[in-house]
Amino acid sequence: MKPASPFLELDEGPRVRVVFDGTPLDLRAGANLAAALLAAGVQTLRHTSVSGAPRGPFCMMGACYDCLVEIDGVVRQACMTEVAEGMEIARPRAGEAGHGA
């Protein structure tokens, strides 16, 4: 059987509750949000506005903008954001992430 997470986690630490796309998740406080979502088994963070294709973190250094998510109503790069208690994270609606800059 496949493990739930495609990643081995070397670090431990206190976790905080966030909500991703309606699902509650307990992520490590202060962790890189894109990494924490990957560790929680979330690989798709958004769908493109052109074709609706799924996308997840790609560069992890703030350059590719494939990990855009909507956090408390603002579209941000998950890989440039740290996990904080109570974050409401949503997959951006079509047209909100991907086009324009």
Binding site: L8, L10, A35, L38, A39, F58, C59, M60, M61
Partner: peptide, 17 residues
């Protein structure tokens, strides 16, 4: 992902795929 992203996950977040 890029191999660099894989390394960043390890360095910063302690994740290994």
């Amino acid at each position: 992902m890029t191999a660099g992203a894989g390394q960043i996950l390890l360095k910063q977040s302690g994740l290994v795929p």
